[in-house]
Design a protein around this nucleic acid. Structure first.
Lengths: 123, 123
DNA sequence: CAGCATCCTATAAGATACTG
DNA sequence: CAGTATCTTATAGGATGCTG
């Protein structure tokens, strides 16, 4: 039973956006893919806290909704790459805005607490 | 037991942003408040599908995180207004980006399906 | 009017083990 | 390597009724 987020009826643009790229992982995944195609394992390394199950699930939904493409290379051992579609590229402004705001916010928090950045693709 | 989303440790700016304004309702609430202060009941009317419990809960979290202000007027019947703080105003670029993208997306979907816009604050 | 309390369901998310 | 399968837990979200 697969889920196409694009099949859900939305009342409002923001609601639709959240439906397609909302949730805990999708924006993060898309952001990592802005640098170019990545393998399953590479994505997992970039998000150490995601489980293979969740990563698979989120990638399938993004694929069903036309945001990313899945390339299977018929080799042994298996090699699968994911990359943004043209449509997927159009979410970049949102990711940039979220990243910029989060960065300012984290800088303030860290300044107060004396902690350091953890190092992430988008910072 | 109240939740301060700002107390959660985040590894990455996008993650932090999602922590503070992610979820099904917060971006929508903030967006409605960009037009100025609103009463509880007004917000509820703008989001017919939200329950009072959820609305209260989301408003409290936004307040704890410094994004909105809650004004209680000591009158009968009670009057409570919510408005963006200066910090809350800074999320506007994100909301705009989400709204713009969602609008283009919905327009395409609707063109294919022949349906119409439902009418929402941000469209 | 603006909520709170209580109870309940659905969905998201995680742990662990296994496989083509 | 890139997943699946199964089981379990946590969180989001909802229905209903009540109150200062």
């Amino acid at each position: 039973m697969k889920r196409d987020c694009s099949k859900i009826p939305y009342d409002c643009p923001i609601e639709a956006t959240l439906g397609l790229i909302g949730g805990k992982w999708k924006a993060l995944i898309l952001d990592h893919l802005t640098g170019g195609a990545l393998r399953f394992g590479a994505l997992q390394k970039m998000m150490p806290k995601i489980t293979p199950k969740m990563l698979t699930q989120q990638l399938r939904e993004l694929e069903n909704d036309g945001l990313i493409l899945r390339h299977v290379y018929p080799v042994v051992p298996p090699k699968v790459e994911y990359e943004l579609t043209d449509f997927g590229q159009t979410v970049l402004p949102i990711l940039d805005a979220m990243c910029a705001w989060g960065r300012v916010y984290l800088d303030n928090v860290r300044e107060q607490e004396g902690t350091k950045a953890a190092g992430c693709a988008c910072e």
